[in-house]
């Protein structure tokens, strides 16, 4: 897949001197769903704002479909739809008027049929004549999505689309995202919900303190950084780990009845068979054995922790 957005050596220093982005380089592939993860204040919104033209970059450049976002802003911006993090809407305008406005703002001729379908897809059609003021928070967020899609963009930025949204609507949102992807729209979303990234993204990028720590295929990331753990439940409780088992650096927990072995699931030699034999030989009685795969969440927390320790 070719890249649709190319960010090179992008930095942003805000007026007060705060460095929100530090030398970020990132290629976003055409048609993919990229999830950007990162703690509060990491710089996710700043990155999106620069690409969309809301914040000026301090250094570096961005191209969209080969066009520079500053020089050829008319071309690049008309390709992009943005759903902002905050619920920023004019309150005294109807749903229908506000999406017609958005479409016009992006230079598109009116197309009532397309907009009607859009509102129906977002379950907003019966609210089309209501003032925004009278909508619930979740509906307002859907209006923001409708506004972003009103001009038929080929790239969609969703800045925390599911913050403050109930489980059902979140699932709806995922379905919508999947539908958009099938029509070829490239989607970049930020989220604090790792499960969300895990569920819908193709690739995941982690931003921390203005730096892109990692960006990779979701599966590859799990593969590369994923740890597997084997929990051995014992019939009896023990005070300490027998000397014969020290080579495996086990952890003792569960009041002395559980041994945990952490290993790299993708390495040639996991050492599981030897461990089980050694446990048997040491005279301990096995009650149960189970394993678990680390989730993106564990990986994410691990990455941010390592990164923060490194910079401290």
């Amino acid at each position: 897949m070719s890249s649709i957005i190319s960010v090179s050596n992008l930095s942003k220093v805000y007026d007060g001197g705060f460095r929100a982005l530090n030398d970020i380089s990132l290629d976003i592939k055409s048609g993919e769903i990229l999830a950007l993860l990162g703690p509060n204040g990491a710089g996710k919104t700043t990155l999106i704002s620069v690409i969309c033209g809301i914040v000026n970059a301090s250094a570096g450049s961005v191209t969209v479909d080969g066009y520079d976002i500053v020089k050829d802003y008319r071309i690049t911006r008309s390709m992009i739809g943005l759903v902002p993090q905050e619920l920023t809407l004019s309150m005294f305008v109807s749903v229908w008027d506000t999406i017609c406005f958005s479409r016009g703002l992006f230079g598109k001729k009116p197309n009532p049929l397309y907009l009607e379908q859009l509102l129906k897809d977002l379950s907003l059609w019966d609210k089309k004549d209501n003032d925004i003021l009278t909508l619930s928070g979740g509906m307002k967020r859907r209006v923001l999505i409708a506004k972003a899609l009103s001009h038929e963009p080929s790239i969609l930025f969703l800045d925390e689309p599911t913050a403050g949204v109930d489980v059902e609507l979140r699932k709806d949102m995922w379905v919508l995202v999947e539908k958009l992807r099938q029509t070829g729209v490239t989607i970049i979303l930020t989220t604090h919900y790792i499960e969300e990234a895990e569920e819908i993204a193709d690739r995941v990028g982690v931003i921390n303190e203005g730096e892109l720590i990692v960006v990779d295929d979701k599966e590859a990331l799990k593969h590369k950084l994923g740890k597997r753990q084997m929990m051995i439940e014992l019939e009896q409780t023990i005070e300490s780990i027998p000397e014969s088992l020290w080579t495996w650096s086990l952890e003792l927990s569960g009041n002395g009845s559980r041994l945990t072995y952490t290993y790299d699931s993708y390495s040639e030699h996991t050492g599981i068979a030897e461990l089980l034999r050694a446990v048997d030989k040491s005279g301990l009685l096995l009650k149960d054995v189970n394993t678990s795969q680390s989730s993106l969440e564990d990986i994410f927390i691990g990455l941010v922790k390592v990164n923060n320790e490194g910079s401290a």
Binding site: I54, I75, T88
Partner: peptide, 17 residues
């Protein structure tokens, strides 16, 4: 007003001079 409410983001991100 749009600056105050934050809806200015849309105008800034639109392909207009």
């Amino acid at each position: 007003f749009p600056r105050f409410t934050g809806t200015m983001y849309e105008t800034l991100s639109a392909p207009i001079s």
